[in-house]
Each structure stands twice: as structure tokens, then as C-alpha cells.
Design a protein around this nucleic acid. Structure first.
Lengths: 254, 254
DNA sequence: CCATCTTTGTGCACGCGTTCACAAAGACAT
DNA sequence: ATGTCTTTGTGAACGCGTGCACAAAGATGG
């Protein structure tokens, strides 16, 4: 969910619905796992199960990309991996800067999933002079005074903000002024950016609050129905068999 | 958005649309800021601007909660803070456990926004025996052998999974079996859970891929515009990339 | 070459969410 | 009181996303 007023009204990017774009990485992950197990083809039903979506939805999603399947057989795994990667722009290198190297920023810098898909941490930036030069995840932290130069020298167009909320908007403006056009914001603030700049927000506190809402509702329902209806917890919804995954790097998810 | 999520069919919880629930924390944050500045009332227009949404949407959202505004004046800040907090279930204490104390798990444990709204980190759990007893964010890490006991002793119903992808499903199952009914998943995996359990996913890699998609599209449009119409993709690093609509049966791996 | 079987691709209908636009409600001045 | 002005609350229209259900496409076997 892009926050700020960045959102383009309903400009369906190149005919591919936003909802579909958001699912492509999911498919890609499932396909990559299949690829590593040398599975040659997969049906929409199987792949949908692995990605946790409806098979009709998956087929419709793929139909926006073109007709890459073979009726009666399914989809060629390698070919689909390539097509989706290309569509998402993962066949090219994306230098990324992380601004704000606190607990979270450091964790992000150490995140292995970054490098795995064309994203490369080009620089770590922090406002604390004491951090300057100190290596985090093998990369020396640079001072925010040099932010503009770092962005330009590295041709960075994607920035990650992991600063405290109070600093986020100012950092955002400097990033945008220096040429960044996509921002992933971890600070609990609404960023306002010019048109043409995309902002996506990740907010732990919000996620927890949404869970709390449903949790409260469940508790209420349970209390109300404690006599009558049986809230029998049963059957597993899917049987997604994710292999050992072996998705390497010691560190964390994302 | 932070997110993906394993969504319940369409059970409109207590008449409040899911989309509205997802925005309530946003309003709450803006309102809290106003409250701290001792602002007594706020109009839908002002509050909407602060939260980064449309004012009509905000009014409709609030209408699901009841009529808490005064026409011609606006909304009473304190009252609204209370109503939304109550609606979200933040007036009660929610003990939370974090499983997987790596870089990310530690960052989450240190995250201040947790405690600020009724969420209390009741325990940190890790599978590494070497971590046991070691304090992180002032809380001693406990071994995952004791997971069930920890959940039950603390009455935990919300769990955060920050383990590597390979361990996530197993951890998830143990959490659920022990009584957890809401899960915030940071591991890059599709979790399958029984009905009645809510899962929300936060996936950094997916967010970046979505940004890359839009970034690539922007680059393509820019090139097309300067070029005079031909949809050529601007070479960023070394893009051996065909046009956006390259339907060419490129490298179809046999 | 034909029949059968599998799986894709999609037309269609439905429901949710968003937005507009306006009537109703209340504050405030005279 | 009465009129004016501001702002809420919401009816209605529209558009997007989802899922069903099926025809078309191709594989496979005889």
C-alpha cells in the first residue's frame, strides 16, 4: 500500500492491475522453489496452492502477462520465472540505500533476501557521526551529509527509510531531491512526496493493531456463542508444501 | 502495504469493512499527535490530510463506528482517540511473543512502537541454545523447547514469527497448537493455518519487487517519451532487456 | 486421424471499496 | 428566532478485483 499522495489514481500500469503486480513476487518465490527442485512444469492448481491463492486468480494474473502456459500441461517453470522476473524488472541491478542504521536498519542491511533478487545495498547512511565508517553487514556506514552525493554516484533510485519518525519526512525530501523515485518507508509517519514518486509503507504497529482488532472480535464472538454454536477449529485450508526452502543466508526474512 | 495477508473470505467483522479497520490505526496515530498538541477538535478535512487519505473516505470510515462528530465543528480529538482505541481493542493488554531472535527479531524486540499501544513483549524465543538466557532489549531469550509453556503461562494470543523461512511453518503450528490465534509473519513463506487463525505477512523482498516494477515502468515511460514514442526500456545497468511488450519467445528453456 | 482427457484462458456476474455530491444538523451572529 | 455558514453523515454511482464456469486448445492414446 503506497502511502502519501503518491498513488496514481488508477493508472493501470501497462495494463497490469496493481493487485496482480503485488502477487507476482509471490508466484516468483514459489516458482523459484520449484525450479531449485528441478520441477519442469507446474499446473495453475499446484502453483496456486504453493502461493496460497485461488487458481482462477492465478491464471487471470498470468493472462495479463501473456499466454505462457500450455493447455493440458501447465506452465514451464523456468520460462515463467524468467518472464515474471523480467516483468518485475529483476533482470537488472537495483542499487538501494538504507537511511537510518539503528536496530531495524542494521537488520535490513543484514537481510539476505536483498541481494538474492537484483537488489544491492549500495550504501548505508546515518545521521550519527559516531556511526560513520563503522561497518554494518560488511558495509561502512556513511554520514548523511553526503547523502546527495552517494545517491548520485551510485545511480540509486530506490531508498529505504528506517529512521525515527521525526526524521523521516526530511530524509524523504532529500532523497527525492537527489533523484530517488521509489521509497520503502519503515518510519511510522505519512510521507508526502511529489507526483511520480512511489512510496510503500511497512508499519509493524499498524499490523499488530489490525490483528488486535480481529483478536478482540474473536474473543467477543466466542463469549457470545459459548453456549450454542461450536467454533470447531478444523481442517487446514491448504497443504502448501514448501520444501526445506534452503533459502540460505543465516539471517532473516523480510 | 505493507503486506500481504491471509484473508478471511469476506466476513465483515462486526459490520466494519476490512479496509476501514486497516485505516483506523492511521487515524489513531494522527489523532494522538493532535492530542499531544492539545488540539481539542479536528475537521474531517484536516484529519484526512494528516492521515494521508480522502476526507470522504474518512467520514465514511467513522460512520461505521457511529456518529462521533459534530456538524459544523468536527470531531472531538480525545473522544475519538478513545473510541478508536476501544474499537481496535487497544484498551486491553496484549502479551506478544517473538519467535526467532536474529537480527530482525532483536530489532523488533527493541522497537518502541510495540509497547506504546497496549502490546507487551511477553517473551523472546529462539531455537539456538546459545541464545538462551541472553538478554535482548532487556528480556532474556528463552529456548523454543518451552514455547508451549510460555504461551500458556502468559496467556499469549498474538505471535510474531521472525525465524528463517524453513522454520516458520513448524513454529507456526506449535504456536497455534499452544493457543495463539493471530500471527504476524516476517518469514518469506506462505503459512497455512486452521480456520479461525489470522495471519498477516510482512515481506520486505516483496515490497522491493513491487517498487522495482513501478521503477522499471517509470524508466520505460521516460525513455519512450524522450525517444518519441517507441517503448524502449532505458538501460540502467546492463539490461539485456527487450521492450515492455517483448512477447518474443525469448529464451524458452527446453 | 479421431476420440478423449487435461488444463488453460476468459466472459460474466457479483460484491467490496471509493468517490461524489448533497441534504440534514448544528454553531453562531444578528 | 431566524438566517447564514460550516461540516458531518450518507445515498448512489462507478470501478476494480474476485471467482465461477465453460469453451477452446493442445496433449495423449488408439
Amino acid at each position: 500500500m503506497a502511502t502519501g499522495r503518491t498513488h496514481r489514481p488508477a493508472t493501470r500500469s501497462r495494463g497490469i492491475p496493481e493487485a496482480t503486480v503485488a502477487r507476482l513476487p509471490l508466484y516468483l518465490r514459489a516458482l523459484t522453489a520449484l525450479s531449485e527442485r528441478s520441477v519442469p512444469t507446474v499446473s495453475s492448481e499446484e502453483l496456486a496452492a504453493a502461493a496460497g491463492v485461488n487458481s482462477a486468480k492465478l491464471r487471470k494474473d498470468f493472462s495479463y502477462l501473456g499466454s505462457y502456459g500450455t493447455r493440458g500441461v501447465g506452465y514451464d517453470v523456468e520460462y515463467l520465472v524468467y518472464q515474471i522476473s523480467r516483468e518485475l524488472g529483476l533482470t537488472q541491478d537495483w542499487p538501494v540505500v538504507i537511511v537510518g542504521i539503528g536496530n531495524l536498519g542494521a537488520a535490513l542491511a543484514n537481510y539476505g533476501g536483498f541481494a538474492s533478487r537484483g537488489f544491492r545495498v549500495a550504501a548505508l547512511i546515518d545521521a550519527d557521526p559516531a556511526m560513520a565508517g563503522k561497518p554494518v553487514a560488511g558495509i561502512p556506514v556513511q554520514h548523511s551529509d553526503d547523502l546527495e552525493k552517494i545517491i548520485q554516484d551510485n545511480g540509486v533510485s530506490i531508498g529505504v527509510i528506517a529512521t525515527p519518525a521525526g526524521a523521516a519526512q526530511a530524509v524523504c525530501e532529500r532523497l527525492v531531491a537527489a533523484g530517488v523515485t521509489s521509497i520503502l518507508n519503515f518510519a511510522p509517519t505519512v510521507l508526502s512526496v511529489p507526483d511520480g514518486v512511489d512510496v510503500r509503507k511497512v508499519d509493524l504497529s499498524i499490523e499488530l493493531q489490525i490483528l488486535a482488532f480481529h483478536e478482540q472480535r474473536k474473543a467477543g464472538e466466542e463469549a457470545a456463542a459459548s453456549d450454542g454454536g461450536a467454533p470447531a477449529v478444523a481442517a487446514r485450508s491448504e497443504s502448501a508444501d514448501q520444501g526445506p526452502d534452503g533459502d540460505l543466508p543465516a539471517v532473516m526474512p523480510a
